[in-house]
Amino acid sequence: MSSILRNPLRYQDFYVGAVMIAIAAAGLLDITYGNWRTGQTMGPQAFPQVAYIAIMMAGGLVAANACIGKHDARQEDMLSVLVTAVVMVSGGVLLFLLAGRLGFTVALALALVVGSSLLTREPLRHWKTTILLPIVAAVIMYVLFVQLIRIPLPGGLLF
């Protein structure tokens, strides 16, 4: 146990297991004390209860495995992936809100121009790939989804 405290990053799975146990315990407490109709033996709480117990047992096993040295390798790029996830999800929310104001095609073209500009690098970055291609892609998607397949997408000032 002391080696875990000395070198916690090496035993990432130990903490993963602990978090799983905590989540399952919170779920089971919610079922016991929360607003569940738990009168019957096989009521609405039974199946979620089994799932929480499975998560708790699995968490215990993951933590125990980590203690005896059987654990998954830590991903080196974990932080950058998590930061990307937060940025992309926020960007997705912004894109969706923009689409309500500017319309699907304009918001999409803007998002694609920004995305392509951020993801391409010199000397491969070129106006054809960062401006022309995204606009063409947005127009193709508009024609394909709105005109041909007739999927209702948010409309705005222009389209």
């Binding site: 799983m20 089994v50 799932a51 499975a54 047992m57 699995a58 968490g59 096993l61 993951v62 998954d72």
Partner: peptide, 8 residues
């Protein structure tokens, strides 16, 4: 264990 947890 992680497979079981994902399934649950």
């Amino acid at each position: 264990a992680k497979g079981v947890a994902a399934c649950a």
